[in-house]
Simulated assay, not measured.
Amino acid sequence: MSTPPVRRPDARARLRTLTNDITTLILDRGLLPGDPMPTEQELMAELGVGRNSLREAVKVLQALGIVDTRHGFGMFVAKENLNALQESLAFRGQLSLRHHGHEANELVDVRQALETGLIGLAIQSVTKEHLQALEQVVTEMEAHAERDETFVEQDKAFHRILFEPLENQLLTNLLGVFWDVYRTIYDAVDTDTEITQPAKTAQDHRDILDAVRSRDVGTARSLISEHFNGIRALLAKRASE
Protein backbone atom coordinates (compact mmCIF):
# COMPACT_ATOMS: atom_id res chain seq x y z
CA MET A 1 0.00 0.00 0.00
CA SER A 2 1.52 3.29 -1.08
CA THR A 3 1.68 6.24 1.25
CA PRO A 4 0.78 9.80 0.15
CA PRO A 5 3.76 12.01 -0.61
CA VAL A 6 4.91 14.21 2.23
CA ARG A 7 4.67 17.92 1.44
CA ARG A 8 8.16 19.35 1.35
CA PRO A 9 8.95 22.50 3.36
CA ASP A 10 9.63 24.41 0.14
CA ALA A 11 6.16 23.47 -1.16
CA ARG A 12 4.56 24.79 2.02
CA ALA A 13 6.58 27.98 1.70
CA ARG A 14 5.44 28.46 -1.90
CA LEU A 15 1.82 27.95 -0.88
CA ARG A 16 2.19 30.48 1.94
CA THR A 17 3.79 32.96 -0.46
CA LEU A 18 0.99 32.51 -2.98
CA THR A 19 -1.76 33.04 -0.38
CA ASN A 20 0.07 36.20 0.74
CA ASP A 21 0.26 37.38 -2.89
CA ILE A 22 -3.50 36.94 -3.29
CA THR A 23 -4.34 38.82 -0.10
CA THR A 24 -1.92 41.59 -1.10
CA LEU A 25 -3.68 41.83 -4.48
CA ILE A 26 -7.04 42.21 -2.69
CA LEU A 27 -5.66 44.99 -0.50
CA ASP A 28 -3.79 46.80 -3.29
CA ARG A 29 -6.90 46.91 -5.47
CA GLY A 30 -9.03 48.19 -2.62
CA LEU A 31 -11.51 45.32 -2.91
CA LEU A 32 -14.21 45.17 -0.24
CA PRO A 33 -16.16 42.23 1.20
CA GLY A 34 -18.51 40.94 -1.50
CA ASP A 35 -16.50 42.44 -4.39
CA PRO A 36 -15.65 40.11 -7.29
CA MET A 37 -12.04 39.06 -7.65
CA PRO A 38 -10.10 38.59 -10.90
CA THR A 39 -10.91 35.38 -12.73
CA GLU A 40 -8.85 32.26 -12.30
CA GLN A 41 -7.16 32.86 -15.65
CA GLU A 42 -6.35 36.46 -14.75
CA LEU A 43 -4.88 35.44 -11.40
CA MET A 44 -2.79 32.71 -12.99
CA ALA A 45 -1.35 35.20 -15.48
CA GLU A 46 -0.79 37.99 -12.96
CA LEU A 47 0.75 35.81 -10.27
CA GLY A 48 2.64 33.52 -12.64
CA VAL A 49 1.30 30.27 -11.22
CA GLY A 50 -0.44 27.17 -12.49
CA ARG A 51 -4.08 26.24 -12.03
CA ASN A 52 -3.45 23.55 -9.41
CA SER A 53 -1.27 25.83 -7.27
CA LEU A 54 -3.82 28.64 -7.48
CA ARG A 55 -6.72 26.40 -6.55
CA GLU A 56 -4.81 25.02 -3.56
CA ALA A 57 -4.13 28.56 -2.34
CA VAL A 58 -7.76 29.56 -2.85
CA LYS A 59 -8.88 26.57 -0.75
CA VAL A 60 -6.65 27.79 2.08
CA LEU A 61 -8.10 31.31 1.83
CA GLN A 62 -11.61 29.90 1.78
CA ALA A 63 -10.92 28.01 5.00
CA LEU A 64 -9.66 31.24 6.54
CA GLY A 65 -12.81 33.11 5.50
CA ILE A 66 -10.93 35.48 3.17
CA VAL A 67 -12.15 34.26 -0.23
CA ASP A 68 -15.55 32.95 -1.23
CA THR A 69 -16.07 30.90 -4.40
CA ARG A 70 -19.49 30.52 -5.98
CA HIS A 71 -19.94 27.87 -8.62
CA GLY A 72 -20.78 29.47 -11.92
CA PHE A 73 -20.11 33.00 -10.65
CA GLY A 74 -16.44 33.09 -9.71
CA MET A 75 -14.43 34.25 -6.71
CA PHE A 76 -15.31 37.05 -4.33
CA VAL A 77 -13.78 38.69 -1.31
CA ALA A 78 -15.58 36.95 1.54
CA LYS A 79 -17.97 38.93 3.63
CA GLU A 80 -17.24 39.16 7.35
CA ASN A 81 -17.26 35.57 8.49
CA LEU A 82 -15.83 34.05 11.65
CA ASN A 83 -17.05 30.52 10.97
CA ALA A 84 -13.52 29.17 10.66
CA LEU A 85 -12.60 30.65 14.03
CA GLN A 86 -15.76 29.28 15.62
CA GLU A 87 -15.23 25.75 14.30
CA SER A 88 -11.59 25.73 15.37
CA LEU A 89 -12.32 27.00 18.89
CA ALA A 90 -15.28 24.64 19.32
CA PHE A 91 -13.14 21.69 18.29
CA ARG A 92 -10.31 22.68 20.63
CA GLY A 93 -12.72 23.19 23.50
CA GLN A 94 -14.43 19.83 23.01
CA LEU A 95 -11.12 18.05 22.49
CA SER A 96 -9.84 19.45 25.76
CA LEU A 97 -12.80 17.88 27.57
CA ARG A 98 -11.21 14.49 26.89
CA HIS A 99 -8.22 15.58 28.96
CA HIS A 100 -8.29 18.25 31.68
CA GLY A 101 -10.50 20.90 30.06
CA HIS A 102 -7.73 23.51 30.05
CA GLU A 103 -8.62 25.03 26.65
CA ALA A 104 -12.33 24.99 27.51
CA ASN A 105 -11.61 26.97 30.66
CA GLU A 106 -9.51 29.42 28.66
CA LEU A 107 -12.42 30.00 26.27
CA VAL A 108 -14.70 30.73 29.21
CA ASP A 109 -12.05 33.14 30.53
CA VAL A 110 -12.02 35.06 27.24
CA ARG A 111 -15.79 35.36 27.00
CA GLN A 112 -15.99 36.45 30.64
CA ALA A 113 -13.29 39.07 30.10
CA LEU A 114 -15.03 40.48 27.03
CA GLU A 115 -18.44 40.77 28.63
CA THR A 116 -17.35 42.09 32.03
CA GLY A 117 -14.92 44.49 30.41
CA LEU A 118 -17.45 45.99 27.99
CA ILE A 119 -20.64 46.05 30.04
CA GLY A 120 -19.89 49.55 31.33
CA LEU A 121 -19.70 51.00 27.82
CA ALA A 122 -22.84 49.11 26.82
CA ILE A 123 -24.77 50.54 29.78
CA GLN A 124 -23.71 54.07 28.84
CA SER A 125 -25.31 53.64 25.41
CA VAL A 126 -28.30 51.43 26.20
CA THR A 127 -31.63 52.73 24.91
CA LYS A 128 -35.25 52.22 25.88
CA GLU A 129 -35.64 49.95 22.86
CA HIS A 130 -32.75 47.74 23.98
CA LEU A 131 -34.21 47.47 27.47
CA GLN A 132 -37.59 46.50 26.07
CA ALA A 133 -35.99 43.82 23.90
CA LEU A 134 -34.04 42.47 26.88
CA GLU A 135 -37.21 42.43 29.00
CA GLN A 136 -39.01 40.36 26.38
CA VAL A 137 -36.17 37.85 26.19
CA VAL A 138 -35.95 37.48 29.98
CA THR A 139 -39.73 37.02 30.20
CA GLU A 140 -39.44 34.19 27.66
CA MET A 141 -36.62 32.66 29.73
CA GLU A 142 -38.78 32.73 32.84
CA ALA A 143 -41.65 31.06 31.00
CA HIS A 144 -39.37 28.24 29.85
CA ALA A 145 -37.88 27.92 33.34
CA GLU A 146 -41.36 27.48 34.85
CA ARG A 147 -41.72 24.44 32.57
CA ASP A 148 -38.23 23.26 33.58
CA GLU A 149 -37.04 23.82 30.00
CA THR A 150 -33.73 25.21 28.80
CA PHE A 151 -33.72 28.34 26.61
CA VAL A 152 -30.68 28.31 24.35
CA GLU A 153 -31.92 30.82 21.76
CA GLN A 154 -33.12 33.31 24.37
CA ASP A 155 -29.80 33.10 26.19
CA LYS A 156 -27.89 33.88 23.01
CA ALA A 157 -30.28 36.72 22.13
CA PHE A 158 -29.89 38.28 25.59
CA HIS A 159 -26.12 38.54 25.33
CA ARG A 160 -26.32 39.81 21.74
CA ILE A 161 -28.83 42.56 22.59
CA LEU A 162 -26.89 43.46 25.73
CA PHE A 163 -23.94 44.67 23.67
CA GLU A 164 -25.81 45.98 20.61
CA PRO A 165 -25.64 49.56 21.97
CA LEU A 166 -21.90 49.55 21.20
CA GLU A 167 -22.72 49.33 17.45
CA ASN A 168 -19.58 47.30 16.81
CA GLN A 169 -20.33 44.57 14.26
CA LEU A 170 -16.98 42.85 14.68
CA LEU A 171 -17.52 42.69 18.43
CA THR A 172 -21.03 41.35 17.92
CA ASN A 173 -19.73 38.63 15.63
CA LEU A 174 -16.85 37.79 17.96
CA LEU A 175 -19.13 37.56 21.00
CA GLY A 176 -21.43 35.36 18.92
CA VAL A 177 -18.53 33.04 18.14
CA PHE A 178 -17.57 32.75 21.78
CA TRP A 179 -21.19 32.22 22.79
CA ASP A 180 -21.61 29.39 20.28
CA VAL A 181 -18.35 27.78 21.37
CA TYR A 182 -19.36 28.20 25.02
CA ARG A 183 -22.72 26.59 24.28
CA THR A 184 -21.07 23.66 22.48
CA ILE A 185 -18.85 23.02 25.47
CA TYR A 186 -21.74 23.44 27.90
CA ASP A 187 -23.88 20.90 26.04
CA ALA A 188 -20.96 18.48 25.82
CA VAL A 189 -20.49 18.64 29.58
CA ASP A 190 -24.09 18.23 30.76
CA THR A 191 -27.63 19.06 29.63
CA ASP A 192 -29.43 17.72 32.72
CA THR A 193 -31.76 20.47 33.94
CA GLU A 194 -31.00 19.44 37.54
CA ILE A 195 -27.46 20.54 36.80
CA THR A 196 -28.09 23.46 34.44
CA GLN A 197 -30.88 24.89 36.69
CA PRO A 198 -33.07 26.86 34.25
CA ALA A 199 -34.82 28.78 37.05
CA LYS A 200 -31.55 30.06 38.49
CA THR A 201 -30.22 30.92 35.05
CA ALA A 202 -33.36 32.91 34.26
CA GLN A 203 -33.07 34.74 37.57
CA ASP A 204 -29.41 35.52 36.85
CA HIS A 205 -30.44 37.21 33.61
CA ARG A 206 -33.26 39.07 35.36
CA ASP A 207 -30.77 40.41 37.91
CA ILE A 208 -28.37 41.51 35.16
CA LEU A 209 -31.20 43.29 33.36
CA ASP A 210 -32.23 45.07 36.55
CA ALA A 211 -28.67 46.30 37.03
CA VAL A 212 -28.47 47.48 33.43
CA ARG A 213 -31.80 49.25 33.72
CA SER A 214 -30.54 50.99 36.87
CA ARG A 215 -27.25 51.77 35.07
CA ASP A 216 -25.41 50.16 37.96
CA VAL A 217 -22.15 49.22 36.22
CA GLY A 218 -20.49 47.69 39.27
CA THR A 219 -23.37 45.35 40.02
CA ALA A 220 -23.83 44.42 36.37
CA ARG A 221 -20.13 43.61 36.03
CA SER A 222 -20.18 41.49 39.20
CA LEU A 223 -23.30 39.61 38.13
CA ILE A 224 -21.94 38.86 34.68
CA SER A 225 -18.70 37.61 36.18
CA GLU A 226 -20.61 35.32 38.57
CA HIS A 227 -22.73 34.14 35.64
CA PHE A 228 -19.78 31.99 34.52
CA ASN A 229 -19.46 30.10 37.81
CA GLY A 230 -21.86 27.43 36.57
CA ILE A 231 -19.85 26.39 33.55
CA ARG A 232 -16.65 26.49 35.58
CA ALA A 233 -18.19 24.13 38.13
CA LEU A 234 -19.30 21.77 35.38
CA LEU A 235 -15.83 21.78 33.82
CA ALA A 236 -14.25 21.12 37.21
CA LYS A 237 -16.67 18.24 37.79
CA ARG A 238 -15.87 16.82 34.35
CA ALA A 239 -12.12 17.06 34.99
CA SER A 240 -12.43 15.26 38.33
CA GLU A 241 -14.27 12.41 36.67
Rank of each mutant, 00 (worst) to 15 (best):
G230H: 04
N52S: 14
G93D: 09
R92P: 13
R98I: 09
L175A: 00
P165R: 07
G117D: 03
S125T: 13
D180L: 00
R160H: 06
A104H: 11
N168S: 09
R238K: 14
N52Y: 12
T24K: 13
D190E: 15
P33T: 09
H100F: 12
I195P: 01
Q62C: 07
G48I: 07
I185C: 06
I26C: 06
R98P: 05
T116H: 15
T139Y: 12
D187Y: 14
T219Q: 12
R238D: 02
A11E: 14
D216E: 03
N173E: 06
A157M: 04
V152L: 12
F178D: 08
H159I: 01
A202H: 03
A143F: 12
S214G: 08
I185P: 13
Q86P: 12
E146L: 11
Q94L: 13
T19M: 05
R111P: 13
Q112G: 13
R232Y: 14
D28A: 12
Q169Y: 06
F91H: 15
A84N: 05
A157W: 06
L61S: 00
G101H: 08
S2W: 03
I119G: 03
K59F: 09
E80H: 05
N168V: 11
V217N: 02
R16W: 04
N168L: 09
N52C: 05
A78R: 05
S240I: 07
V77F: 04
T17C: 13
L25H: 09
L118M: 07
L25W: 12
H144A: 07
H71S: 08
H144Y: 09
Q86E: 14
L85P: 07
H102N: 14
L89C: 05
G30F: 02
T19I: 06
V108S: 03
M141G: 08
H71K: 11
R29L: 11
D216V: 00
K237R: 15
E103A: 10
